[in-house]
Each structure stands twice: as structure tokens, then as C-alpha cells.
């Protein structure tokens, strides 16, 4: 039987973790520091066949994406929905309710609310998890001129959202989905008419604004995560990976990551809602 309450236990665990981390960091900085600041912003790319755009893959992105999907599935399997909600169930219900209210406010057509909710919610969960993994120390693979360098627990995990391919895929998915819903709702004639809506003179501007949507949508997330990662890498190199990186990981990984995931999901809802009007 434990005499400590849960909060005190957590505080104790956090203190012990921090002391262990500081001691390990001191040992690392004093004795084992021969890391070169090489390959910043580089990606591990495997080419096969002819190479080029279609013949190359980014293995870390694939591995981490599958890992995140597996984590989400395991968590979803562990939630039991009962009449008296447990801790996990009330967390999930709170999150879903918050998003459902936003969807109800934004999407004008009742028929399409469910699909908007599902898409935005799954994007939010995936992006939040992958951003948060970028704030936890783990395995990172960086290509050098001769082979790969695998860093264990000095850099955070590789987060899939720091790869522009992932973000651009989701942004284009949202664009195509929103226009498909608009065609379904208004018919092709009505959809084409919406491009010349105030006056026909504005047709090029409308087309450009539609094309600019996925670009700004994806580059916002990419710039935040990637820029934060490079900033943390350079500052922690200057301090020889002493105590400071913990706070930087906390800020850029958890805080910025959570806000950017929320912004991404909110913009998904807003884009779908704006096309359906």
C-alpha cells in the first residue's frame, strides 16, 4: 500500500527523471562530446529503380507514420465506452465534443457535418501525436557523407510532420475533399458558377486563392515543426546538450506542436465550410 497520493508520486518521478537526465547530460558533455554539427536539415532517402520523384522513399517518415497509427489504434482499443465514463472515455468525449461544436458552427449543410468531423478529428490526432513525438528524446537518423549516423536519446524522435510530403498530402486531400463535397451539394453547374461569383472579372483571383490554400495550409505546419527542430538542434549543439534542451523540446515540441495541430484541424473545417456556402 502506498502512502503517497498520485500527484506526489508524479512529482517524485519527474524530479528523479530530471536529476538522471542532468547527470547523464553532464557526463555526455564532459566525456563523450565529439558530435559534429553535420547534416542539419538532411533527410535519409532510399532510392530504387530509376530514382527521381517516384522512385525514392523516405524510410523514417514511413516507419514513424506506421508507429503513430499503431499507437492510436492501441489507445482506441483500450477505451471502453460505458455509462459511467472512465478517465480515458471522458478525455475522448471532451475532445470530440469540442470539435463537434466547432463543426456545427462552421459547416452550414447538415449532411456533410459527419465527414468533416471525422476528417478533421483524425488529422488532429495524428498531427498532435507526431508533433509531440518531436519533443521526446529518442531515435533519430541523419545521413552523412559516408553512411548514416543514428543518435540515441540526444535528439528527439523524427516527427513525420517535419517532412513536407506528409503535410502537402493532407492539404491536397482537404482541398480535393472540399471541392468534391461542393460538387455533390451544388451540382457541377453551381460549382462552376461559384468561381465567377461576385463578377466574372474575378475568375483568376478566385482560382489563385483556391491554389494558395493547400500551399499555406501545409507550409505553416512544416515551417513551424522543421524550423523549431533546426533551432533546437543548433542551440543544443552550442550548449553541448546540457540541461537547456529539455525546455526547448517542451516549448517547440509540445506547446507549438499542439497549437499547430489545432490550427491545421480548424483550417480543415473552415475550408470545407467556406466552399459549401
Amino acid at each position: 500500500m502506498s502512502f503517497l497520493t498520485k500527484e506526489e508520486n508524479l512529482k517524485k518521478i519527474l524530479k528523479i527523471t530530471f536529476i538522471i537526465y542532468a547527470a547523464l547530460g553532464l557526463i555526455n558533455a564532459l566525456f563523450f562530446f565529439n558530435l559534429e554539427l553535420d547534416g542539419v536539415g538532411e533527410r535519409w532517402i532510399v532510392e530504387f529503380g530509376n530514382g527521381g520523384f517516384l522512385g525514392s522513399i523516405n524510410p523514417m517518415t514511413l516507419i514513424m507514420s506506421f508507429a503513430i497509427i499503431a499507437i492510436v489504434l492501441l489507445f482506441a482499443k483500450g477505451v471502453k465506452f460505458e455509462r459511467i465514463p472512465g478517465r480515458k472515455q471522458s478525455l475522448v468525449e471532451m475532445l470530440f465534443e469540442y470539435f463537434w461544436e466547432i463543426v456545427e458552427d462552421t459547416v452550414p449543410v447538415k449532411k456533410y457535418r459527419k465527414i468533416t468531423f471525422v476528417i478533421s478529428m483524425s488529422l488532429f490526432i495524428y498531427i498532435t501525436l507526431s508533433n509531440i513525438l518531436g519533443g521526446i528524446p529518442g531515435v533519430d537518423v541523419i545521413p552523412l557523407k559516408d553512411g548514416l549516423s543514428v543518435s540515441l536519446f540526444t535528439n528527439p524522435w523524427y516527427s513525420p510532420t517535419s517532412d513536407l510530403n506528409v503535410n502537402l498530402t493532407y492539404a491536397i486531400l482537404v482541398l480535393i475533399l472540399s471541392h468534391a463535397l461542393a460538387i455533390n451539394h451544388k451540382g457541377i453547374g453551381g460549382w462552376l458558377k461559384s468561381f465567377i461569383q461576385p463578377v466574372p472579372f474575378l475568375l483568376p483571383l478566385n482560382i489563385i486563392s483556391e491554389i494558395a490554400k493547400p500551399i499555406s495550409h501545409s507550409l505553416r505546419l512544416f515551417g513551424n515543426i522543421m524550423g523549431g527542430g533546426i533551432l533546437v538542434l543548433i542551440i543544443s549543439y552550442m550548449l553541448k546538450y546540457f540541461v537547456i534542451p529539455v525546455f526547448l523540446w517542451g516549448f517547440f515540441g509540445w506547446f507549438v506542436g499542439f497549437i499547430q495541430a489545432f490550427v491545421f484541424a480548424l483550417l480543415t473545417i473552415a475550408y470545407i465550410g467556406s466552399v459549401l456556402e
Partner: peptide, 9 residues
């Protein structure tokens, strides 16, 4: 923040 991030990119 997003316009600043474009210049960062």
C-alpha cells in the same frame, strides 16, 4: 506567425 514562417522556409 505564418508569413514569418514562409521567410524562414
Amino acid at each position: 506567425e505564418s508569413t514569418g514562417l514562409y521567410s524562414l522556409v
